[in-house]
Structure formats: structure tokens, C-alpha cells
Design a protein around this nucleic acid. Structure first.
Lengths: 339, 339
DNA sequence: GTGAAAGCGCTAACAT
DNA sequence: ATGTTAGCGCTTTCAC
């Protein structure tokens, strides 16, 4: 078996409580004794049992994070920030992937709840009511989702969408398509909300979808957007935008000359695709860290439990957007030729 | 406080031991009693404390996974498989991101060791000796790395590289560049090993680098490869290959007409970049699952502790490779014009 | 088939 | 400043 506090105590010729104190509240023990204890700890390679400790303190030193898909760089970006901040705070991180299955999600959450001090929840799709219910049994901090009364680390998606619209309007676009993400998604609702507000009276907005928020969804959506006569296509996220770019290229539609395309998220490859994608950068890492900080506050009881903090987003302009020159001239010429 | 086994016992009018048995070894308790207990469990929403349980059983029901970078889709791909299989087995997963820092890695491993039954280690860079040492104190399963005597879930990188070489040779390439990944990386050694073995006598091989295995590394490497007169560029991984594609496009070098490019890993965007990338698919998910299975075997003590299993890889041919036609003709023409 | 008792490794009163 | 005691919630002998 592993070395216990008794082994250390025996070796340092003190009682177990002194060892415990030397480790947890060093100021309470005599300097010389402390040295002896610490030496014994080092020699034996002693590491306290978290299980035993948590049994008595009621705290585990662990937090959990639940995400819908570990294959999605959006969530792993957040996870990376969570992990980094948790490490600094001496917390270990449980990760659970619900695979977008709400039933599995609830089960995982239940199983997790007993061995964490709180859980960070990335769940775009489960209903508000269930989240509220969950929050009664488990300390919860929401990520990228706003529910009344539950603390949350948010990213200003609506603001990001507004920046996209401002950009396209400034370029001269008048008729634009939005490719909706999943129907129940909070992110999609937010993005669409910001979009509609910004577009009102300035932009002829065609809403398409919902589509699956993947490459395939983009392939499918591209044709619909072209058929709708949009001079710019705003995709729900970068992955869909990639699909759009591919499909347009295959059909011989020039980007951005004939159609402009925007994404959302600024994933790593957004800079590297062809053409480089104009998109909205989300502060994933910062949001992850913020969520942990809020959790830390909630655990220690110092912070107001229900704060919601929102991080700014920013438009990254690259080469996939331009004024709608060629298409405008096509529109103008064609009637002339035909008529 | 949360509901304990005593609460359930009182409600079901039995002793705590009976509750424990009803949950853990149902066959040992009378049918009617069991029903009563299970009902009480349900009504109270009882969830056993893992901490208390592990204190006595010596098992935690947790496993840990250590990766060098959660921002890298390669590792999150593995993580996804790990998570899925662990969930099936009723294990919870701790995740730690060492951020490629060997010192942090050791510290995290130590901190983790007491609260997991074993750890899955993805560590391309720490020395073999340290891994062996680690394995004495902690149950270890290696991922994508082979160290004598330590169980491991492997992917046949060398075989993947051989397929790349076969493909390029078949297309008629004779002079190819390999862009090395990080110097100390086990993956890079394996890929290079497979490459050299396959290239011997068939290919004029130019080795460049090491480069940082990122987009920027590819940008940098592309120029060197072109200068070296290679008709095909084999990148250490897809992310570097993306950088290569971008740089070549910016310089007006046609892919694959003038230069063929290959990647490694078959990340999601490899199909969506321009041109779609010929690359080697790694069984990330399967490797993650396999590693958990091996861990399960090691924990239950049934499996031979030091097995190493290797999963096959497969070449995915897309549009970034072709016979070196244009370049050949350029080579032929240019001297004629100049001379 | 069920209950009583002991103890896993640790911390937090309470003594000294 | 240090030791003693009790018990966190659970499983597991050992009786019955």
C-alpha cells in the first residue's frame, strides 16, 4: 500500500496530527519539528490521500467540466483554459463528454456530483428548467450560456455578430444569408439575436437552416445561400464556413469576388484555409479561466453566487470578405442582356 | 450535507450493511429487502460517496490522462475515445495538460497518482528512463509511444509513412523533402524511421527541420523545401502541411501541379483545405479506447501487464498529390531557354 | 439473509 | 507546540 500519514509520523517521531499540521498550517508547528516532518515526507515520497481528506473536510479539490463534444475545438479551447487555471489553484479536473446526449449528460452529472466541489457546464441544448434544477444539488457555473440566477462565464456572441453585420454593411452588402446552427442551441439563438438586431433596416436578411454545425452542413447550406441570391454568407461557425468555401470553390463561385463568407469562432485553421476566413474570435481560454475563478469564488463562499460575466469578442477581418463588386455587375448586366 | 447510506438504511428499515450489499452484490440479499432498499435509494436520490468507498476498497474508479496540449486535435481525438470507453466502464476521467512542460508533467502526475487507479500517458518527449521510473509508483499505459516493459496502445506511424512513400514513388516522384517535427518527439522518430526505411534506394530524401509542429512551422519550411528542389513535400503533420499549402499558394507555386504535399493525422480540416490534403489517418479514437481497455485489464489484474498493441494506419489520398508533371517540364524547358 | 463492529487515512476539536 | 480522541461514509469480516 501507499505511504500514510502514520508512516511519516513514526519516521519524524511526532504524532499524525503534527504531520497534518506541518503540511496544512505550517505556522502552527515549531520550526525544527516542521523540518523533521518535511524531511520525512520527502524521504518517504508521501502524498496525502485525497479521499481520506475529502471525507472529513467535505471538499474534494476536484472540479468537473461537462462538454457536448470533445472533438469540437471550441470546447477543447475552453477546456484548455479551465485546465490551466485549475492547475494553478491546485484543483484537479474531471472531464465528461456527453456526446450531445441529454440523458447521458444528466447521468454523468449525477455520477460526477459526489466527487467534485462543483461543475462547469457547457451545455448549449438542455432546457433552462433542468439546469435550474441541477443547480440545487450541485454547485454549477455555466459556460457560454445564460440562465437566470446561475453564475456564468459568457462570451459576447451577439456583439460579435453585430460586428460582422457592420463589416458587411460597410462593404456595401445588402442581401445576406445566415446559416443557422442547431435549432435548440443557445449559441445559435444568441448569434441570431445579435444578427437580427444589427441587420434591422440595413440588411436584407435571409435565414437558412438549421444545419448540422459541421463541414457537411456547410456543403449543403452553400447551394441554398447561392440560390437565395445572397452576396454574403454568414455561417453559424467556422466549421460550417469551411464547408461553404469548399462547395463554392467546387461550383466555381469565386470568394470573395462573387460571394463573401464569414465564420464564427476563429479556430486555428480559419487563418489557413483558402481564402483565409473573416470570422469572430471567441475568448475561449479566457472564458475557461474565468469560469474556474467564479467556481473558486463560489466554493470559498466569498463571491456572490449568481454573477454573470461577459467577455468581449472581436471580428477578425481576413480575405473571405470584400465589397460585392463582381456580383453587382452581374446583376446589373444580366437583365440588360436578357431584356 | 448529502444523503448517506445511513439515511437510506433508516428509510428502508435495514442496516447500512444491507444497503451496501443490495447495491454491490444484489444476489446476497433477499428479493423483497432489495426492492425496499432500491426504492429508498431512488426516493432519496442516494449516490454513494466515492471517497469513502475508495478509502476502504483501495480503488478509486478514476483514471487519469496526461496530454501535452489540449489545443492539439490529435490529443483531444484520443481523449474523446478514452472518455467514451471509460464512461462505458463506469470510470471517471481526470485530464491534465502538461503544456509540453516536463517539470509540470511530473508534478501533475504525482498529484494525480493518489486519486486514480492508473494513468494514460501521452508524452512524446519525456525520456524513457523517467517513464520507467514513473511506472514503478503508478499504473501506467502509454499512448502512441513504445517503452520496453510498459504497456502501450500504439498507432503504426512508420507504416503510415511507408504508404506515403509508396504513393509518391508510384506517382513518379524521385526527390522528396521531409519536414521534421520536434527534435525529441517519439512520433517524429517513428515517422522518420518508417520514411527512411521505405525511401532507401527508391527516393532521393531531403530532411529539413526540425520545425515547430504548427502552422508557422509549415510556412517556414515550405520555402526551404522548394529551394531544395523537391517535387513532393511530406510534412510531419497536417497542421504543418496547412502552413506549407498557404505559403506555396502565396508564392504562386501550384499544388499539386508543381509540388505535391502530404500531411499526417487526417484532422478534420484536412478534407476541407485547398487542395484537400493527402494524409495518413490515425486511429485516435480506437487508440484511446484500447488504452482504457488495457488499463482495465491491468487494474483487474487479468491482463499481462506489459502488452503492447499496435493499431493500423491508412493513407487517405486526396487532391494535394499528383504525378510531378509540370515541374518536370519546367525543369526540362528552363535550361533550354537559358542555355 | 441480516446486523454489529471494525477500520480505511485523514483532520479538527479538545486536552495537555 | 504537540498529542489524544473522535469520526467523516463506506465495505467487509464475523456473528447470528
Amino acid at each position: 500500500m501507499a505511504v500514510t500519514i502514520h508512516d511519516v509520523a513514526r519516521r519524524a517521531r511526532v504524532s499524525p496530527s503534527t504531520v497534518s499540521r506541518a503540511l496544512g498550517s505550517p505556522e502552527l508547528v515549531n520550526g525544527a519539528t516542521r523540518e523533521r516532518v518535511l524531511a520525512a515526507v520527502r524521504e518517504l515520497g508521501y502524498e496525502p490521500s485525497r479521499a481520506a481528506r475529502s471525507l472529513i473536510t467535505g471538499r474534494t479539490g476536484n472540479i468537473g467540466i461537462m462538454v457536448p463534444d470533445l472533438g469540437n475545438p471550441f470546447f477543447t479551447g475552453v477546456l484548455k483554459g479551465v485546465q490551466a487555471r485549475a492547475r494553478q489553484a491546485g484543483l484537479a479536473v474531471f472531464v465528461a463528454d456527453s456526446d450531445e446526449d441529454p440523458v447521458a449528460e444528466l447521468a454523468l452529472l449525477r455520477a460526477m456530483s459526489r466527487q467534485v466541489d462543483g461543475v462547469l457546464l457547457c451545455s448549449p441544448s438542455i432546457p433552462d428548467g433542468q439546469i435550474v434544477e441541477l443547480a440545487t444539488g450541485t454547485r454549477l457555473v455555466l459556460l457560454n450560456r445564460r440562465v437566470r440566477g446561475i453564475p456564468a462565464a459568457l462570451m459576447d456572441s451577439a456583439g460579435g455578430m453585430r460586428q460582422v453585420v457592420d463589416h458587411l454593411v460597410a462593404l456595401g452588402h445588402r442581401r445576406c444569408a445566415y446559416l443557422n446552427g442547431p435549432r435548440g442551441s443557445w449559441s445559435n439563438r444568441e448569434r441570431r439575436r445579435g444578427l437580427r438586431a444589427a441587420a434591422r433596416g440595413r440588411l436584407d436578411l435571409v435565414e437558412l437552416g438549421p444545419f448540422v454545425p459541421r463541414y457537411e452542413g456547410g456543403l449543403q447550406a452553400a447551394d441554398l445561400a447561392v440560390a437565395a441570391g445572397a452576396s454574403a454568407i454568414m455561417a453559424y461557425n467556422d466549421v460550417m464556413a469551411m464547408g461553404v468555401l469548399t462547395r463554392l470553390r467546387d461550383r466555381g463561385v469565386a470568394v470573395p469576388a462573387e460571394v463573401s463568407v464569414t465564420g464564427f469562432d476563429d479556430l486555428m485553421f480559419a487563418a489557413g484555409c483558402a481564402p483565409p476566413l473573416t470570422t469572430v474570435a471567441m475568448p475561449l481560454d479566457a472564458a475557461g479561466r474565468l469560469a474556474v475563478d467564479m467556481m473558486l469564488g463560489a466554493i470559498s463562499g466569498t463571491a456572490p453566487a449568481a454573477g454573470q460575466r461577459e467577455l468581449p469578442t472581436s471580428l477578425i477581418v481576413r480575405a473571405s470578405t470584400s465589397p460585392p463588386v463582381l456580383r453587382e455587375s452581374t446583376n446589373v448586366d444580366l437583365p440588360a442582356v436578357t431584356g
